[in-house]
């Protein structure tokens, strides 16, 4: 497909001018950049960051990932890291068993809000409290995306889902659970942060959070969690272009971005990463 508009530059091939490539299509640790997630989905953006950080830390050959069940599960076939596919909600325990047998490896989980905060809430809490040296990565879009946009434990008040058609009502549906805040008082927790992929600045900050979380694991400081707010235009029933704005206004209101625990010590909510 080519444009006949005069002002459009050719972006098909490599540039002919002397230049340096500063960013590649897909991260090195993906077998294939083509995937079947929806247009405008935030999950692949977060997965890119995760894989880039593992690569940049030099742990590509020393990492074991445990993948939960949600839309991101489609990446189990694409991520070029040794993986264990867990059942819905069960990744933190699986990561625990693997880490205890291979303490020299970097262990991470990749889970959604439905997976971690609904089905497997007690898993992540106990894993944190045991101070397991694993890094849990939560892709929080406030819905069960995979099943078609249903309410999860992180769905914001007022948010419309297929099981909260008039918007989440505290009296009827109960309140959202801010999982990152919930882990703050636990001993054993070394690093907790919440990022987002709503815009490029947030993406850059979130990548720094992932790096810190893994560095805490490598330093043997205990449990770490990075929660990443991701767009789900399909499950939010909005146009893709409205995703970032909706994320900030609806999910971001309940789940504020920032670092919550650094070096095992709680830091002020909303501090930038």
């Amino acid at each position: 497909m080519s444009s006949d508009r005069l002002d459009v530059l050719d972006t098909h091939g490599r540039p002919t001018r002397v230049s340096t490539r500063v960013g590649e299509f897909e991260p090195k640790l993906l077998l294939d950049g083509e995937h079947d997630l929806c247009p405008g989905c935030g999950e692949p953006v977060a997965i890119r960051l995760l894989l880039e950080v593992i690569e940049e830390l030099g742990y590509a050959q020393d990492s074991i990932g445990v993948i939960g069940i949600g839309c991101y599960t489609a990446f189990t076939g694409l991520i070029d890291v040794d993986l264990i596919q867990a059942l819905h909600g069960r990744a933190p325990s699986v990561a625990t068993g693997a880490k205890r047998m291979r303490p020299d490896k970097l262990l991470f989980t990749l889970q959604g809000d439905g997976d971690m905060v609904n089905e497997g809430l007690q898993e992540v809490i106990h894993t944190a409290a045991r101070g397991e040296s694993v890094t849990c990565v939560l892709l929080n879009n406030g819905v069960f995306g995979e099943t078609g946009g249903h309410m999860t434990a992180t769905t914001a008040l007022g948010q419309r889902t297929k099981t909260s058609l008039e918007g989440r009502d505290a009296d009827y549906h109960g309140y959202p659970i801010p999982i990152a805040e919930l882990l703050v008082p636990l001993g054993g927790v070394s690093y907790v942060a919440r990022g987002s992929v709503a815009d490029a600045k947030s993406v850059v900050r979130t990548k720094a959070m992932l790096r810190k979380a893994f560095e805490a694991q490598i330093a043997g400081e205990g449990f770490s969690l990075v929660e990443i707010l991701t767009m789900c235009p399909t499950g939010w029933f909005i146009p893709t272009a409205d995703g970032p704005g909706y994320l900030d206004e609806v999910l971001g209101e309940v789940h504020a971005a920032g670092e919550l625990v650094v070096g095992g010590k709680p830091v002020g909510k909303g501090a930038s990463g």
């Binding site: 590649e24 299509f25 995937h35 405008g40 999950e43 692949p44 953006v45 815009d199 490029a200 993406v203």
Partner: peptide, 9 residues
């Protein structure tokens, strides 16, 4: 950084 489909270099 924001592209979900890895279309940009």
């Amino acid at each position: 950084l924001v592209c979900p489909d890895f279309c940009i270099e």
